[in-house]
Design a protein around this nucleic acid. Structure first.
Lengths: 342, 342
DNA sequence: GTTAGCACTCGTGCTTGTTGAGTGCTAACA
DNA sequence: TGTTAGCACTCAACAAGCACGAGTGCTAAC
């Protein structure tokens, strides 16, 4: 059995309705809709077919039908018509974003806020992989006896810091000149290329070997760790509780637990290919706690070589249309704001 | 009517039981407890008195009694006996904390995690007021045409950054020497004293007036704003959902909404006096969403002049004993870790 | 191919009855 | 005079029974 024009039409109507109401959809409801000129009985026959084909589920005999995950897949791949955001909305989102752009660390955080406000779902933003960022500046600051704070400024102004130990008796001036030297040697190199640069430095080491070795180690450990908790920002975590899918406290708790595990989120948001928008529906994203969720992701650029991910997590019956529009827009906006610092 | 020895004993037993079970406590239950040698009937008489005095509430006629907020107040002020943490626990917490102490920005975050894990409640940590921190280092880094990133390293290694605009044609070298000058002039001054220092600098300005003015403005704006979202860290937000008090999704949502508003949290955790531990029970902390919550706070030191706050938010029937012990211990531990960088 | 009609299913919400934990009161006891 | 046993009373929680109605599947007529 194949899907003909009418089955598509009816399936789409069902999904549209279910996305709005979260209630099983009956044949009468569809029949009454404008654009569908058939009686409930006819719709029923078609629905029966669609169920057999795996596009619809029936919670129980006397309830309406509910779209299956397979149906959502079809919907986002073929059925869905894209909607445009109003200029007003675009403007509001953009303004919110640039308002914070004076404080670099705040941009991503406020972007997450904008995303979750605009969609009413939960948003997640993952900062670019550390290794791909380019070093702008390295500074060692004495903070205690035999200890210094190493501050690395990268493009996009992202600042990473770590405490390293320094040799006995090394004073501020010495650290200052080492900082200058490091900045000179490492400027514009991506963090992941730092190992090579250091190897070279260490070979003709006029500077203290142990200090450099220590510094290198810190940088490498940071790279290995693959970023820390502050690299994954969640917006509107409580938004999910608005939806009947998560009106059960237990499910809600499990969902929130996933949001707390930044590592899981980072993995969850890792993107498959280069396509602009990626959609994962229900069990497609493995985690049982997210079985009733879909994750839609897009990416943003920082400079020429780094990309980060922004995404929306909502119920499988989310408003894909709108979510996609918002993500596309925000992806561009974020790229603009974060790439203005060359 | 006054509270005699026996009333205290019974009230304490009721509160202890209710803290464990969250179920209204009946006279039989108390009668069976070791240490209370009275029959249910006697207990009932006393309970009736305690209710009249406002220490107990009765959800409905045929239910047991529930401690009132007044009772909790009495409990934490007089009845409660303090418990000691086991050495094992102390060690575990301490280890977790110092494990992260190589990455300064992570210490507070991981402390919040330790707190919420150890208590099973929600934890909040507020960083010290920016103004009280002392400047260790100022660095201007060119990031774009006519734009620089200003990085301020303070004691405790806390790094603040902001983008400022710079005059046309100013190059990296020039920024470098200005940075050096600024560091020299501002080192060891608290951020709130920066205005004066700048006034002086501007008077005998051998350096670019506009740049300095801009820089000052950025610092002041930061101080005024009173800290941003990253200064308030929440641990284990979902922990509260474990308790029947918040098994209603609506209440849970309202609670989580409070946690998202960092400004509200900052206010909520602001501490009254200098006492070591402050406890606010139920409506004492204004917000309706937190009517069934208590907030217990302690403070930690950073250097000699700055203090931050760490706190636990849990149901009013929380285990005050344990929470207090944990907060006291962690307050000391955090102070130690964060004050090692002089 | 479409649709009206009808018997059937089954979750939801309401009522009713039962149970049991817990109370307050009274009277007897030490 | 303080304590306790006894007993009638209350009321939430749970279960059973019932009516309702939304929705289905099937059949037969158009």
């Amino acid at each position: 059995m194949q899907l003909d024009e009418r089955k598509y039409l009816i399936l789409q109507a069902i999904i549209d309705d279910y996305i709005m109401t979260a209630m099983p959809v009956g044949s009468r409801t569809i029949s009454r809709k404008s654009g569908v000129g058939y009686s409930p009985a006819t719709i029923r026959n078609e629905m029966s077919d669609l169920e057999e084909l795996g596009y619809l589920d029936q919670p129980h005999t006397s309830a309406g039908r509910v779209p299956s995950n397979k149906a959502y897949r079809l919907y986002v791949d073929h059925l869905m018509k894209t909607v445009k955001l109003t200029n007003d909305e675009r403007e509001r989102m953009h303004d919110h974003l640039v308002a914070k752009s004076k404080q670099v660390e705040g941009v991503i955080r406020s972007a997450a806020g904008v995303l979750s406000d605009a969609t009413k779902y939960t948003s997640v933003i993952v900062a670019p992989k550390l290794g791909t960022l380019r070093i702008k500046h390295v500074q060692l600051v004495p903070v205690a006896e035999r200890m210094a704070l190493m501050v690395i400024v990268t493009n996009a102004g992202i600042v990473k810091d770590a405490v390293i130990s320094i040799p006995e008796g090394m004073d501020a001036d010495e650290l200052y000149s080492i900082s200058r030297m490091l900045t000179e040697k490492l400027a514009d190199k991506p963090l992941e290329a730092v190992r090579q640069a250091f190897a070279e430095l260490l070979r003709n080491a006029e500077y203290n070997r142990r200090l450099l070795g220590d510094t290198l180690q810190v940088i490498e450990k940071r790279l290995e760790a693959g970023g820390d908790a502050s690299d994954v920002i969640v917006g509107g975590p409580a938004n999910m509780l608005e939806y009947p899918e998560y009106s059960d406290v237990n499910k809600a708790r499990n969902f929130l637990a996933v949001l707390e595990s930044k590592d899981t989120l980072r993995q969850l948001l890792s993107r498959d290919g280069g396509m602009e928008i990626s959609i994962r529906i229900g069990p497609e994203n493995q985690l049982p706690a997210l079985n009733d969720c879909s994750i839609v992701t897009a990416s943003y650029r920082v400079g020429d070589h780094s990309t980060g991910t922004l995404g929306i997590i909502g119920p499988t019956r989310m408003n894909y249309n709108r979510v996609i529009s918002v993500l596309e827009f925000m992806g561009r906006a974020l790229s603009d704001v974060l790439s203005q610092y060359k």
